[in-house]
Measured scan of single mutants.
Amino acid sequence: VSVELPAPSSWKKLFYPNKVGSVKKTEVVFVAPTGEEISNRKQLEQYLKSHPGNPAIAEFDWTTSG
């Protein structure tokens, strides 16, 4: 189950709350306009370098507050 949070234009930000008793931590995933899922800052940096014209990296908020 995921919750969609505010994201930069043409992107989606999905929040996957951890299940009770789960060892997996809460996860935030950005979905690029191409449909590619980005789950960490390093991936995001690589994606933005190879896909010019996207929002600046500073516009991506990895917190769950939206």
Results as ranks from 00 to 15, higher is better:
V1L: 14
V1S: 11
V1A: 11
V1D: 14
V1K: 08
V1H: 13
S2T: 12
S2K: 09
S2A: 14
S2R: 11
V3N: 07
V3F: 11
V3S: 07
V3A: 07
V3D: 06
V3R: 05
V3G: 06
E4N: 09
E4H: 08
E4D: 08
E4R: 07
E4F: 09
L5G: 07
L5T: 05
L5R: 05
L5Y: 11
L5P: 04
L5K: 06
L5D: 05
P6C: 08
A7P: 10
A7V: 05
A7G: 06
A7I: 04
A7E: 03
A7C: 06
P8Y: 04
P8W: 04
S9W: 10
S9E: 13
S9L: 14
S9F: 12
S9Q: 15
S10D: 12
S10Q: 14
S10A: 13
S10I: 05
S10K: 14
W11I: 02
W11C: 03
W11A: 01
W11Q: 01
W11L: 01
K12H: 08
K12G: 06
K12Y: 06
K12P: 04
K12I: 09
K13T: 03
K13P: 02
K13G: 02
K13H: 02
K13I: 04
K13V: 06
F15S: 06
F15H: 08
F15V: 15
F15I: 12
F15N: 05
F15M: 10
Y16W: 08
Y16I: 10
Y16P: 02
Y16T: 07
Y16L: 07
P17M: 12
P17H: 11
P17I: 15
P17N: 09
P17E: 12
P17D: 08
N18W: 11
N18F: 10
N18C: 13
N18T: 10
N18E: 10
K19I: 14
K19Y: 12
K19L: 14
K19S: 11
V20Y: 10
V20I: 12
V20F: 09
V20E: 14
V20M: 10
V20T: 12
V20K: 09
V20H: 12
G21A: 08
G21Q: 07
G21Y: 03
G21H: 09
S22V: 07
S22T: 11
S22W: 06
V23W: 08
V23Y: 11
V23L: 14
V23K: 07
V23Q: 15
K24Y: 13
K24P: 15
K24G: 15
K24F: 14
K24S: 15
K25D: 15
K25N: 14
T26C: 15
T26E: 13
T26M: 12
T26W: 15
E27S: 12
E27V: 15
E27Y: 15
V28G: 01
V28W: 03
V28L: 07
V28F: 05
V28M: 05
V29L: 08
V29H: 06
V29E: 03
V29K: 07
V29S: 05
F30N: 00
F30P: 00
F30C: 02
F30A: 00
F30H: 01
V31M: 08
V31R: 06
A32M: 00
A32E: 00
A32W: 01
A32Q: 00
A32C: 03
A32F: 01
A32H: 00
A32L: 01
P33I: 03
P33V: 02
T34S: 07
T34G: 05
T34A: 02
T34C: 04
G35A: 02
G35D: 02
G35N: 03
G35R: 03
G35E: 02
G35I: 00
E36G: 02
E36P: 01
E36N: 03
E36T: 06
E37S: 11
E37A: 12
E37H: 15
E37M: 14
I38F: 08
I38P: 00
I38H: 01
I38Y: 03
I38M: 05
I38K: 00
I38R: 00
I38E: 00
S39W: 15
S39L: 11
S39M: 11
S39Y: 13
N40L: 04
N40V: 03
N40K: 04
N40M: 04
R41L: 12
R41D: 09
R41K: 13
R41A: 12
K42C: 14
K42H: 12
K42I: 13
K42N: 11
K42A: 12
Q43K: 06
Q43C: 06
Q43H: 08
Q43Y: 06
Q43W: 05
L44P: 00
E45W: 11
E45R: 10
E45H: 10
E45Q: 10
E45N: 08
E45M: 10
Q46K: 13
Q46A: 12
Q46D: 14
Y47V: 00
Y47F: 06
Y47R: 00
L48H: 01
L48T: 01
L48F: 03
L48G: 00
L48Q: 00
L48E: 00
K49I: 10
K49A: 13
K49H: 11
K49T: 11
S50P: 01
S50F: 09
S50H: 09
S50Q: 11
S50W: 08
S50K: 10
S50T: 14
H51F: 06
H51E: 02
H51S: 02
H51L: 01
H51M: 03
H51N: 07
P52S: 05
P52R: 04
P52Y: 04
P52H: 06
G53M: 05
G53F: 06
G53T: 04
G53Y: 04
G53P: 03
G53A: 05
N54T: 07
N54H: 07
N54W: 04
N54Q: 11
N54P: 06
N54G: 12
N54D: 03
P55R: 02
P55L: 05
P55M: 04
P55N: 03
P55Y: 06
A56W: 04
A56L: 11
A56I: 07
A56M: 09
A56T: 11
A56Y: 07
I57V: 08
I57E: 08
I57R: 04
I57T: 05
A58N: 14
A58R: 10
A58H: 14
A58T: 11
A58Y: 11
E59V: 06
E59P: 01
E59I: 05
E59F: 07
F60W: 02
F60L: 02
F60D: 02
F60Q: 01
F60G: 01
D61S: 07
D61C: 06
D61G: 04
D61N: 07
D61V: 07
W62H: 01
W62E: 01
W62V: 02
W62D: 01
W62T: 01
W62S: 01
W62Y: 03
T63K: 07
T63L: 06
T63W: 05
T63D: 08
T63I: 06
T63P: 03
T64H: 13
T64A: 13
T64Q: 07
S65N: 12
S65P: 15
S65V: 11
S65G: 13
G66W: 08
G66S: 11
G66N: 12
G66E: 11
G66H: 10
G66Y: 09
G66V: 12
